[in-house]
């Protein structure tokens, strides 16, 4: 039912819901069972094509594919991308020759998965595992899955996303997916870390974290890279964490059932304090577990069906 997953903004509400529902079944089918493996994708080959290191994401995809009995090949192409080594095209042709059914691609260049999907070099399903500063759709899906698990239907829920929206693919993917699912989203960041035209995004924008927190059902803190400081996006780590960090005091002002998310890896003490990160309402570890279920769901919906009788991203079954 899904040909490629390149961007969460490509998903209809129906498709997103199907993925999340399927992920829930994946959780039920594997949780607490002695046999966690399902035979569904036996004989299928999933390639993890990582032009950029990310052990967390790669491991999550690997586990997801293996739980569905797919063969997994890890193809680390780090350093060979933009730096004139083996080109994306040659890599794609190699993978096609190896008979890859799906390619999970992580790349430092925005849009690289689009090139792979549209080029005609390979007819495998393409799954974006994070491209440059563009999108990271399975992260958004696992975040939505985690929120839905705690909050129920996200329709009308208020979700606050805080941090580097300009360079952050997680923010982009989350805003569009959460909006698709009917949530009310507010992004909070210093103006320098918001992209031009953010006012056209399906969310509200605020520079003031304290004003945005009341009424929030979930708060997602994004990683802020220290090196942004040097590029004059903000003056110092201290000033950033004072204005935009989630500390105990701000945490205390959240409603009792609100949850805290972070896509990881965290800068404790920068965007989030250790107390908040380790609190009961922090679901950060759960996010990791849920990542596997969501990725299983996407791989299942992409690969389990008839080869390529369907083109494009068709409506849910």
């Amino acid at each position: 039912m899904i040909r490629h997953l390149l961007s969460s903004s490509d998903l209809t509400r129906e498709q997103a819901t199907t993925i999340l529902d399927t992920a829930e079944e994946m959780a039920r089918l594997t949780e607490g069972r002695s046999v966690k493996k399902l035979p569904t994708l036996r004989g299928r080959t999933v390639v993890n094509l990582f032009f950029e290191d990310s052990t967390r994401t790669r491991t999550s995809f690997e586990l997801a594919a293996k739980r569905l009995s797919a063969d997994v090949i890890n193809f680390s192409a780090k350093g060979s991308s933009v730096s004139k080594g083996e080109s994306l095209k040659d890599t794609a042709l190699t993978l096609a020759a190896m008979g890859a059914d799906a390619v999970v691609v992580r790349h430092s260049a925005s849009g690289a998965p689009y090139r792979l999907a549209d080029s005609g070099w390979i007819d495998a399903n393409v799954l974006n595992a994070g491209d440059g500063t563009h999108e990271h759709p399975t992260q958004a899906l696992l975040d939505a899955f985690t929120m839905r698990h705690h909050l129920g239907d996200l329709d009308g829920r208020h979700i606050v996303i805080v941090g580097d929206v300009l360079h952050g693919r997680v923010a982009r993917s989350n805003v569009s997916l959460l909006a698709t699912l009917g949530a009310r989203v507010t992004v909070v960041a210093p103006p320098t870390l918001l992209p031009l035209g953010v006012e056209h995004w399906p969310c509200e924008v605020s520079y003031d974290l304290d004003a945005a927190l009341p009424g929030a059902s979930a708060v997602m803190m994004l990683r802020v890279q220290q090196e942004r400081m040097n590029a004059a996006f903000f003056p110092s780590a201290r000033e950033y964490s004072r204005r935009y960090g989630l500390d105990t005091q701000r945490f205390g002002r959240l409603s009792d059932d609100a949850i805290v998310l972070h896509p990881g890896p965290m800068n404790r003490g920068m965007e989030i304090t250790a107390e908040v990160a380790d609190s009961e309402r922090s679901v950060i570890v759960e996010q990791v577990t849920n990542g596997v279920y969501v990725r299983m769901a996407v791989l299942y919906l992409m690969l389990a069906g008839a080869g390529d009788g369907t083109t494009g991203q068709e409506g849910a079954a």
Partner: peptide
């Protein structure tokens, strides 16, 4: 810089050329 800086560059995650 990669493309015109605009709402679209923000959406595509491409560095803007203002």
């Amino acid at each position: 810089a990669q493309m015109n800086e605009s709402e679209l560059s923000g959406r595509l995650g491409l560095r803007g050329w203002p």
